[in-house]
Amino acid sequence: MSITESPVAPKSGMTVGRERKLSTHSDTLYRGLIIVALAFFVLVGVYYFYSIIDQSIPGWKAAGFGFFTGTTWNLNAGQFGALPLIVTTLSTTLLAMLFAAPIGIGAALALVYLVPRRLQLLASSLVELLAIVPSVIYGAWGFIVLRPIMLYHVEPWLQRTTHNTWPFTGVPSGEGILLGGVVLATMCVPIVTAISRDVFEVVPRDLIEGAISLGATRGQVLRRVVLPSCRTGVLAALTLALGRALGETIALTFVLGGVSTVPKSLFSAGATMASEIASALGNGGALGDSVLFCSALVLIVIVGLVNYLSRTIIRRSQRKFQ
């Protein structure tokens, strides 16, 4: 278990636990409390979804399907086209995962199979340190430290080496989708690493020795035996990170710039569905607020969908391989 205990990672203890409970006779008060607790939780959960949907209704009425297709977002002017938000959300998340997945998984492999035993605790503690830094601090750091680096070094260099081809077009401004993706990646990497490391750590030594005894090199052991047998756990790690990236709010309000139209390149400013809620709630009147609830609802659906898909894949492959 680690700082980012994965809810979807397969835990053998869980399935065993399902079969186990105390006897059910007598003890009325205890039984009663249990029912009340479960019912209470269901009520709160339902109320949460109901509230968000209920609050978003005026917004849907005003924005209609144009919420998904409209390219202009201006709450004060009554323009509720959320495509700019959706595009920014998906592109920053995609960018973040492109960085975070290989680095996070690679680092986890290195932590388990490369770092000497006596340094392992230190190294993983350092990685987890990165996970506990609050998101508002990442935002501040991204704006103060990373933005100038992006503006004066990374973005001009990218434009030069690619000869100004898309998606590296536009005027480098430092802030925008690229910076947002990098900051998000920084926040996602420790999640991916911490969970993947837990998964890699429990790969039976037998399997590794089995591969070694067949003449595999150490690299082949990791690529062909360790990684494939951990794919459900790694997928769970990626899913959690993906959800975090989609819903990340505060850090992105610092580094994305701001929004009105659909971003055209990696250097374009923008706002994600989540970050726009934080920046704009209360600024666009009652109707504007309601439209922001629409944005929250869409976000919830996307995150829920991602979770559902990943669970289905995990369940299916568990059925096949266990």
Partner: peptide, 12 residues
């Protein structure tokens, strides 16, 4: 070659 105490086919 080597065969181990517990069967260790590659699960994936």
């Amino acid at each position: 070659g080597m065969v181990f105490q517990r069967p260790n086919p590659f699960p994936s």
